[in-house]
């Protein structure tokens, strides 16, 4: 994939961090507002995809990134399972996904027990997953056209 013109590159450079930050915001407020891990993760991934489209894919670099992201993705799912299993162990009730943290008051940023933590993990997983899918397709396409 070839890169785009200088105007697109510059605007992308300015916008990508803002998009990423907005994604982080959506993930962090997942238990209070619409959105959450999945939606926020997609927004964060879109900032990466944006950059790849604007700057064009440089194959060896993308392959390297892909490995790191795969690591993050598996780690995130494992983290999700570990939190779920912690409920099984810590709450003393032998219940999967049991609540083991303080629930707090509804409406505060730090509340809802382990749900914000799960949201962050899901956000990381979705961001990594969607970026991997996009990169894999970009790499495939470049390999075909060569």
């Amino acid at each position: 994939m070839k890169g785009m013109s200088i105007i697109v590159k510059k605007i992308c450079q300015i916008l990508a961090p803002v998009i990423f930050l907005f994604g982080l915001y959506v993930v962090a407020h997942g238990h209070l507002t619409p959105g959450g891990g999945f939606a926020g993760g997609v927004i964060m991934a879109s900032s990466f995809i944006f950059q790849i489209i604007a700057y064009g894919s440089i194959l060896p670099k993308l392959r390297h990134e892909e490995h790191g992201l795969e690591f993050l993705e598996s780690g995130a799912i494992l983290g999700f399972l570990v939190i779920a299993a912690l409920g099984l162990i810590l709450s003393g009730t032998s219940i999967f996904f049991a609540e083991f943290l303080n629930k707090g008051t509804a409406g505060n940023l730090i509340s809802a027990g382990f749900i914000p933590i799960e949201n962050i993990v899901v956000g990381a997983e979705v961001c990594a997953g969607i970026s991997i899918i996009f990169m894999a397709l970009a790499v495939f396409k470049d390999e075909v056209t060569k």
Partner: peptide, 25 residues
């Protein structure tokens, strides 16, 4: 006794992810 039930999902799913991380090394 009941806590055996979720193991059927937890173990294969967890081992897939552990494999993905540790299997590299």
């Amino acid at each position: 006794m009941n806590s055996l039930v979720p193991l059927f999902i937890l173990i294969p799913l967890g081992s897939a992810m552990i494999m993905s991380i540790l299997g590299r090394f």
